[in-house]
Design a binder for these strands. Structure first.
Lengths: 221, 221
DNA sequence: GCAATAGTGTCTATTAGACAATATGGG
DNA sequence: CCCATATTGTCTAATAGACACTATTGC
């Protein structure tokens, strides 16, 4: 290990969305050393000359490499150490981001990077660096918030039905929820606003559309 | 603001303990620029040549500057940005540490630094950098865990009574708790082990002593 | 009418909160 | 005995979980 005065600082992002009702996380195939060719969650190095803080680093990376502005972005934790990156002492600030299902088509890799939506529980790749651990931490953070009654509305389009809200919570938690109980709890919160007169129609009773209340944030009680 | 390729990386620690039944946080008076003479939570810069990761940075700082090994140390969050430190682009990884009440006498400042235990709610000083915000985040993190049933046993000596456990939770939360309810919930957890035959005596009925269960960690359910 | 999903209600078990009652030492 | 605190119990209100029921559309 070479001596160094300063660590390498990166922001890495676990970007979640819903694809065909399944919770999915974006992986990218690394186009550079180290771990070239391996899959990883998207990330990039801090640029002090352009980033006002590390959240901006994360937003810049998502914008430039993935072409998305996430609906929600928050810090999960920071990992660090002398050996986690072969280039030397490094720090990674891990973010968790939520992308509405209807914005998934906008996601692209750049010329040199393939991207892929994967099951966060079982992504099917051996990930680069300690990204497996980072992914697990991000998923657990997301689940913890949903268990604590936070609604991941940022995974849904801006108008949605109560059943969709239930589905997204179920897919995040990985378990079915009781409809009656779930809706009773939604009623006790004030997070949702009924869109009067707006319904989704199908081969059954129409479903009332809702939207997030003004000032809504994905936050537990 | 001067151009720089690398940010300054520091670990800052909100070190909590109980002093005369009151929750207290350690502040130090800064001996160096910037903010010389102002009060701050203890912290120091990462040394990649000695620290295997940032948790070790925090431990090294607590050991060398304050002379303590905390009973519990965990990450709270990371703050960063171009302007939070007048020296330039900086990152601070905030830790929260718990020190058992019976280890408080060991705490010292070094020759150049005064130290002081303060009320974290109202420390009575204008703190350096963004340390007021950091202190609030650390306190809120601590409270959130205790609200979620985590027991801050690391603030107590290794043997303690149930009343002491209740007191420490009350002081962290800043509100009184019901004795019957609190003890019922303790019984339902398996965090505590009764020390058979060991009691605290006073001018009243003796109180059973307990200790943390093997493998206990300060963690919410 | 039937299928399918939306939306509501109801019963019971569990848990929280308030408070009372009892227990056991020292003096 | 009396005081102080430990420890336990009890009643009620609130909440969660399981499940059943009704409602409204397209076909």
């Amino acid at each position: 290990m070479k001596k160094q005065l300063f660590p390498l600082v990166t922001a890495d992002i676990a970007l979640f969305t819903l694809i065909e009702e399944r919770l999915s996380v974006l992986l990218v195939q690394r186009a550079n050393e180290p771990f070239i060719g391996q899959w990883a969650i998207p990330g990039g190095v801090l640029d002090p000359s352009t980033d006002s803080d590390l959240e901006q680093t994360a937003r810049r990376i998502l914008q430039s490499k993935i072409n998305v502005k996430p609906g929600h972005l928050e810090q999960v934790k920071t990992v660090s150490g002398a050996v986690r990156d072969p280039r030397g002492w490094s720090i990674s600030i891990l973010f968790s981001a939520l992308l509405p299902a209807d914005q998934v088509p906008a996601v692209v890799g750049d010329k040199t990077q393939a991207v892929q939506w994967c099951d966060p529980q079982n992504c099917g790749h051996k990930l680069a660096f300690d990204h497996q651990e980072l992914l697990e931490a991000a998923l657990e953070g997301l689940r913890k918030k949903v268990r604590n009654r936070a609604l991941p509305l940022h995974l849904l389009p801006s108008k949605f039905t109560l059943t969709q809200v239930q589905r997204v919570c179920e897919r995040v938690l990985g378990q079915e929820l009781d409809k009656g109980t779930f809706r009773r709890q939604l009623r006790e919160n004030a997070d949702l606003v009924e869109l009067e007169g707006e319904y989704v129609r199908g081969a059954q009773r129409p479903a009332q559309l809702y939207t997030a209340a003004p000032g809504f944030v994905f936050k537990d009680a």
